[in-house]
Design a protein around this nucleic acid. Structure first.
Length: 220
DNA sequence: ATACCGATGGACT
DNA sequence: GTCCATCGGTATA
């Protein structure tokens, strides 16, 4: 068994993000958000969890980003060109919502897709919303479990009802890196980050980083 | 365990 | 028209 995950010892206090945390490039923020917390009070019901899986989307430089086109901002991707710390929520396949955290200075269209959450509070509510397990593994499920919809497009993540807060530090030997899931453009870019052995991670593949310590295989 | 398939809506060619 | 940053059911191994 690898070292225990830091959040297994109890609930971390909600904390503000370190200054400048989200102003860095999407790739750095995607790694940095592992162990941080997402707290929803949408619909007056509190649900929260620890971020255990992310993907970076690096704006115009990144062929897989919704901000990749040379044509500049569209109605959908506009929020990504704005300041960091706002949510980019979009609908995919006509039925699921996906949520990103906008990163980088204004004008830089970086974003980080939240793909996996280790549920900590309000699991009963999440079950109710989801109707089945797993609760918050995968971007669509994560949004459903926390009640995130298109209404939260452009929401300031310092404010109710959806807040991003600092949480636990995740050591480097507990982080897996792989290519992004479901993307065809830039398919070989190692822009996905996940916590080894954590529940809430959608898959544990990873051509990119063998990561000596972790024998995978721990279940939820 | 992996594989395929259908649902469904909006952005884009 | 086509392409998805997906999911859940069903099928096959």
């Amino acid at each position: 068994m690898p070292s225990p995950l830091p959040w297994q010892s109890g609930l971390a206090p909600g904390a503000e993000l370190p200054a400048g945390f989200l102003l860095r490039p999407a790739l750095e923020v995607a790694r940095g958000l592992l162990g941080y917390r997402l707290v929803s009070t949408i619909g007056g019901r509190r649900t929260s969890g620890v971020i255990v899986e992310t993907e970076a989307y690096d704006g115009p430089n990144d062929p897989a980003s919704h901000a990749a086109t040379l044509r500049g901002p569209t109605k959908r991707n506009a929020v990504m060109f704005g300041p960091a710390g706002f949510s980019y929520v979009y609908r995919i396949y006509g039925m699921h919502w996906c949520m990103n955290v906008v990163t980088g200075p204004e004008g830089d269209a970086g974003a980080v897709l939240l793909r996996g959450l280790h549920a900590m509070e309000g699991q009963k509510v999440m079950k109710q919303r989801r109707g089945c397990e797993p609760l918050s593994t995968g971007p669509g499920r994560l949004c459903e479990a926390l009640g995130i919809t298109g209404e939260l497009y452009g929401h300031d993540l310092r404010e109710e009802p959806l807040r991003l807060q600092a949480g636990w530090a995740v050591a480097h030997d507990m982080v897996g890196i792989s290519t992004r899931i479901g993307v065809s453009a830039a398919a070989d870019w190692p822009y996905r980050f996940y916590v080894l052995g954590a529940s809430g991670v959608s898959r544990h593949p990873g051509p990119t980083k063998p990561s000596a310590t972790a024998t995978e295989g721990s279940q939820e």
